[in-house]
Amino acid sequence: MINLAKVLDAVAQADSAVAQMAQPEKVVGENIFVVMAVTLLIWFGILGYLFYVDMKLRKLNDRLAE
């Protein structure tokens, strides 16, 4: 009986170990904030540039229309 309990215990432990292994390991490259930072940097850069050019273009057109 005691042996059986021990075996069950060991199996449970092994199971939890497997469950831990199955979890995604904490390795490099799992930081989603890096991805977010990169994406946002690119989009803000592009949008900022477009808005800047657009603004200057509108001002210029106003002056040309005068």
């Binding site: 490259g29 799992e30 930081n31 989603i32 890096v34 991805v35 990169v38 994406t39 690119i42």
Partner: peptide, 25 residues
């Protein structure tokens, strides 16, 4: 493209989540 980069594309093994950087960088 942005939606697909985050939800449709799988991750490469060695790069993890940062695989997605590839689609913009």
């Amino acid at each position: 493209v942005i939606w697909a980069a985050f939800y449709y594309a799988p991750r490469a093994k060695a790069l993890g989540e940062t695989t997605r950087v590839l689609f913009f960088h």
